[in-house]
Design a protein around this nucleic acid. Structure first.
Lengths: 137, 137
DNA sequence: TAAGCTGGTTACCTGGAAGAAACTGCCACT
DNA sequence: AGTGGCAGTTTCTTCCAGGTAACCAGCTTA
């Protein structure tokens, strides 16, 4: 497999689908898209709602999503300037599948947590060096 | 909705749904789940198919997915030991939505790339400091 | 006049993930 | 006796997303 490689393959890193997938693989982006699916939201409203997000990361993520054409940024010349972020038609089609993912998470959360607990319990037993000894640290 | 906030909110970081979402926000994990949806695959087969993945990252990601109960690891005592990774029933329900995401990416890839190009062109013009000057660096 | 709202930007720093490369042990083939 | 496939592990290093904190301008309210 060394000398001759075919240049175009789905699992190659040149595939643009992989680029799109990479963008979705972002914990904040998914959260923002989900928050926007009920209508336009302002910057500081997003900042307050999505807890623990910093303004820097929020503005960076918003700009990435805007660059991808998934959300739109609208500036209103109100008393203090108002900026609203909303889903584009393209972004709207995406949130259908994103919320499908979120619903999967809600439904199967318990199963995942149970699996994690079982896995951790099993590996803890396996890692025990000499049973019967007090474990230091 | 301002003064009194309920202690349990979906967007709080204590929400386990967010933990599940974080796991899915992994470029390699999504790729692996997608690769496994047609049947069990061996370690080195995955390594060859998903190009540019290192054995270290592959084994780490597989272990995370196994811990979450999404994939199963089966060891066969063949001549050189064979290890097969396959989707659990839980993982199988997930790949339905994951492939929905992948299909969205395939369908809308062009729109996203076009949006990126438009955005970049617009911001390049906006960033031009004094038109007519040579840009140093 | 000082704090607080609006929507961000900037500079600095760090932790942890990802990558590179070497190595393990066992066996089969040549 | 050497090479290669199997399924990883270990070590080292690098890199950058994300976090911290301060700051900007303009307006309002106390």
């Amino acid at each position: 497999m060394s000398t001759l490689e075919l240049p175009y393959d789905v699992y190659q890193d040149r595939c643009p689908t992989r680029l799109v997938l990479d963008r979705l693989a972002d914990k904040w982006a998914l959260l923002i898209l989900d928050r926007l699916k009920d209508g336009p939201v302002r910057f500081n409203s997003l900042k307050r709602d999505i807890m623990r997000i910093t303004p820097k990361v929020l503005s960076e993520t918003l700009r990435k999503l805007e660059r991808d054409g998934l959300i739109a940024r609208a500036v209103f010349a109100t008393v203090p300037v108002t900026v609203e972020y909303s889903l584009t038609p393209l972004g709207d089609t995406l949130t259908d599948t994103v919320s499908a993912l979120a619903h999967w998470a809600e439904r199967n959360m318990d199963a995942v947590l149970a699996a994690q607990a079982a896995y951790d319990a099993a590996s803890e037993v396996a890692a025990r060096p000499t049973p019967g000894l007090h474990r230091l640290r």
